[in-house]
Measured scan of single mutants.
Amino acid sequence: FKEKSRGVLREWYAHNPYPSPREKRELAEATGLTTTQVSNWFKNRRQRDR
């Protein structure tokens, strides 16, 4: 994950830790990652924050 991608994901996570499938697609396009990578990032981040 590039620093820029992580920044976008972290910013989004601060507002909404549970993005919808459509939001995940938009995030994937914005970061250049796949929707699966975006989903996993959020899942792992939520797990880490428990």
Rank of each mutant, 00 (worst) to 15 (best):
F1E: 15
F1D: 12
F1A: 02
K2I: 12
K2R: 05
K2V: 08
K2M: 13
E3N: 11
K4I: 07
K4R: 08
K4P: 04
K4F: 11
K4G: 10
K4V: 07
K4Q: 10
K4A: 09
S5M: 13
S5I: 15
S5P: 11
S5K: 09
S5H: 01
S5L: 08
S5Q: 13
R6D: 14
R6M: 15
R6P: 08
R6S: 11
R6A: 08
R6E: 14
G7A: 11
V8M: 12
V8G: 03
V8F: 10
V8D: 11
V8K: 07
V8C: 05
V8P: 05
V8L: 11
V8S: 07
V8R: 06
L9M: 03
L9Y: 08
L9T: 00
L9A: 02
L9C: 01
L9H: 00
L9E: 01
L9P: 00
L9S: 01
R10T: 12
R10E: 15
R10H: 10
E11F: 05
E11C: 01
E11H: 03
E11A: 08
E11Q: 09
E11L: 02
W12S: 06
W12C: 01
Y13G: 01
Y13V: 02
Y13R: 01
Y13P: 00
Y13L: 04
Y13S: 02
A14F: 05
A14H: 09
H15S: 14
H15R: 10
H15L: 13
H15K: 12
H15T: 14
H15N: 15
N16H: 01
N16A: 09
N16F: 03
N16I: 03
P17A: 12
P17W: 04
P17K: 08
P17H: 05
Y18M: 12
Y18E: 10
Y18L: 12
P19W: 00
P19G: 00
P19H: 01
P19T: 01
P19Q: 00
S20F: 05
S20I: 00
S20M: 11
S20Y: 02
S20D: 12
S20P: 05
P21L: 15
P21F: 10
P21Y: 06
P21M: 14
P21W: 02
R22V: 15
R22D: 13
R22G: 14
R22K: 15
R22Y: 14
R22M: 15
E23C: 03
E23M: 06
E23F: 01
E23P: 00
E23G: 03
E23T: 04
E23S: 02
K24N: 12
K24S: 13
K24P: 01
K24H: 09
K24W: 08
K24T: 10
R25M: 13
R25C: 15
R25T: 15
R25V: 15
R25A: 15
R25F: 15
R25H: 14
R25S: 15
E26A: 06
E26C: 00
E26G: 08
E26L: 05
L27M: 13
L27N: 01
L27W: 02
A28F: 00
A28Y: 06
A28V: 04
E29A: 05
E29C: 01
E29P: 01
E29Y: 03
E29L: 02
A30D: 09
A30G: 09
A30I: 11
T31G: 05
T31L: 08
T31A: 11
T31I: 07
G32M: 08
G32F: 03
G32K: 04
G32T: 04
L33C: 05
L33T: 06
L33W: 11
L33G: 02
T34N: 15
T34A: 09
T34W: 00
T35E: 14
T35P: 15
T35G: 10
T35H: 10
T36Y: 09
T36W: 07
T36H: 13
T36I: 08
T36D: 15
T36L: 06
T36M: 07
T36Q: 14
T36N: 11
V38M: 00
V38Q: 01
V38F: 00
V38D: 07
S39T: 12
S39G: 12
S39K: 08
S39Q: 06
S39Y: 06
S39C: 09
N40M: 11
N40A: 09
N40C: 08
N40L: 05
W41Q: 00
W41S: 03
W41G: 02
F42Q: 02
F42L: 04
K43E: 12
K43L: 06
K43S: 15
K43Q: 02
K43C: 08
N44Q: 03
N44K: 12
N44G: 08
N44T: 08
N44I: 05
N44P: 03
N44H: 13
R45T: 15
R45K: 08
R45Y: 03
R45L: 06
R45S: 10
R46D: 13
R46W: 06
R46E: 07
R46V: 09
R46A: 08
R46T: 07
Q47W: 15
Q47L: 11
R48W: 06
R48E: 14
D49M: 04
D49L: 00
D49G: 04
D49T: 05
D49P: 02
D49N: 05
R50L: 12
R50Q: 10
